[in-house]
Structure formats: C-alpha cells, structure tokens
Nucleic acid binder design. Structure first.
Lengths: 149, 149
DNA sequence: GTAAACTCTGTAGTAACTATAGAGTCAAGA
DNA sequence: TCTTGACTCTATAGTTACTACAGAGTTTAC
C-alpha cells in the first residue's frame, strides 16, 4: 500500500504520515524502486494508536514516550500512569483557567450598557488601565501574568 | 524612557514590546541619535490595554481590531460586543471539549488495574485500535477529527 | 506516447512570543 | 581618554503539530 491509500485508510493526511515518520513516531517503511513508500497493514494500528492519543490531547513527545514503552513491555507501567495523571492535572488546570476567563468575559460583556458608539461603550473602558491617583504614572506594581497555557 | 525601563514598568518583555511594534499594535516611537527607541508614558496605557485583552485570551488580531475601533470612537459599538460574544462562545466550546477530554482521561486512568508491567497495563491496551472482525482491515470509516482548538 | 494522477524532498507558513548572535551605543570609573 | 559593563539594535531561529506549496520524478491508463 502506498502512502495515498494509507492516508485514506488511516484518516491521517499524507503530510501528517510523513511528518510522523520524520519525528520518529512511526518507522520508515521500505521503498519501491521508484522511491515510493510501501506500507503493510501494521502501520495502520500504529497510526490508530497515535490518533487515539492525539484525541486525548497527548503531545507527540508524550506519544513517542508511550510508543517506546510499548517496545519494552516488561518495564513497570508506573510511567504510563504518571503521564496520564500529569496530563489530567494539566487539563484540569486549563479548564479552571478557562472558567475564570469565561466569568471575566461575561462580566465584561455586561459593561456595554446600551451604548451606541464605541466611545460610550463600557467594554473598551473596562479594558483600559485602572485609573490611578498619579496620572504621571510613577509607580507600577507588577501584575500577575496571564492565564495562557 | 528607553525600552528597558518600559519593559520593567509595563511588565512586558523587551522582545514582546518590539514584537507588538512590528505587528502594529503600538506605534513606532521616536528614536535617539543612537537609534534607541524613546517612549513616553502614553505607551504604558496601550501596553496595559493589550495585557488586559491578552488576559482574556483575545488574539493579537482581535486586539488590533479593538485598537482601531478606539481610534474611531463614533462608530457603533456593536463590533465590540460581537467580538466578545464570539470569543465567549469559543471559550465555552473549548471548555466543553476539555471536559469531555477529562472524562475520557479519567476513564482511561482506571484501566491500569494493578498491573506492574507495561504489557499488563490496561491503559496502553485501551489506546490500541479497537479489535475488528476482519484483521486484514478492509474498511475504515473516517473518524471525526480531534478536539483540538 | 502522453496525460493524469500520484509521489518525492524541501521549504515556508501558522500564533505569540522567546532566545540567540553579532554588532553598535551609552554611562561611569580609572 | 580609554575601557568596561550595561544597554540596545536588527535579524534569525526555535517552539507545536501540522498544512500548503514548488518543482521534480514515477506510475498508470488510455
């Protein structure tokens, strides 16, 4: 099977398959005389594994780690559990961040009032820096960094 | 004030400030004879505005849009509201995705059982493709793409 | 034989920065 | 005046997981 058929059957794009090969997630297949990649059906399972992991938002380097663990089946499986646990925590913290964000955005949205023009709209005003006593701006506390991932 | 002091007072890094200038979020300041950027305190407010927007995960192009709206204060403020609403929807949908993800990960985590080694651990098994009747894999439905942003 | 369809490698683009290289500028001290 | 260190400049590469080309070669069908 050439790469085009593999792409159709796996649901991965041709470029993605080549990319996974370059990144070492799947091994380089044999080639035809004309230098075309030739796959057997085993790689379908590997791509399916990768897709399942990606659906859980595991990074490619995490997946690479899992693949290497698969290749040494006798090692303790703690590493797998730890990775999932770490990932769970990251997802949880991201959800929390987004929920705060959501609250802030909702509140911001209420600020518009019934303004008709931009300069009366409370939203932009709310996004401006908080007014301080000294307009010359002599001091500035360092504000905490954002909520980004 | 040179860029180093601005960086300290704004809480943005020097590179970020230069990046914002390149992207047109803040205007290019005057220069000293030696080609150093020279800022006045007005830019502090602009950076603060940008930081407030970034804390809400607005993209730089959204922020750019808001900045241009600020510069034409008489235009209707619907555009502002729409942007916030759109953003709210995106955040909501991202939260939903992550919550599904979280559920899937939790379920996956339970599959380990009390395995000691990788080959007995249920997690990796769960990530492998679902077993099908025909091991030669003649058909493959296109599965829906992932949950990524 | 030729045209269409396919595949190859390599490169650039995406978002919002961060980090570096290599050069130039400035301020203070000896 | 010279030098040292701190600062700044531009330009470039790296980050993630791909996607989208360009330009070339290969295969297949007619």
């Amino acid at each position: 099977m050439k790469i085009g058929e593999l792409a159709k059957r796996s649901g991965c794009s041709i470029q993605t398959i080549r990319y996974y090969e370059k990144e070492g997630l799947i091994s380089a297949p044999e080639r035809t005389e004309g230098n075309f990649r030739l796959y057997n059906s085993v790689v379908l399972e590997k791509l399916s594994f990768i897709k399942n992991c990606r659906a859980l938002d595991l990074t490619l380097s995490e997946i690479k780690h899992l693949v290497s663990l698969q290749n040494s089946p006798e090692t303790p499986c703690e590493a797998v559990n730890e990775m999932i646990d770490t990932h769970l925590l990251a997802v949880e913290s991201r959800i929390e961040d987004l929920q705060k964000l959501h609250g802030n955005l909702k509140q911001l949205r209420l600020k518009c009032g019934n303004a008709r023009s931009v300069d009366q709209c409370g939203i932009l005003g709310e996004l401006l820096p908080k007014p301080e006593r000294s307009p010359s701006g002599t001091r500035n506390e360092r504000s905490p960094s954002g909520t980004r991932k």
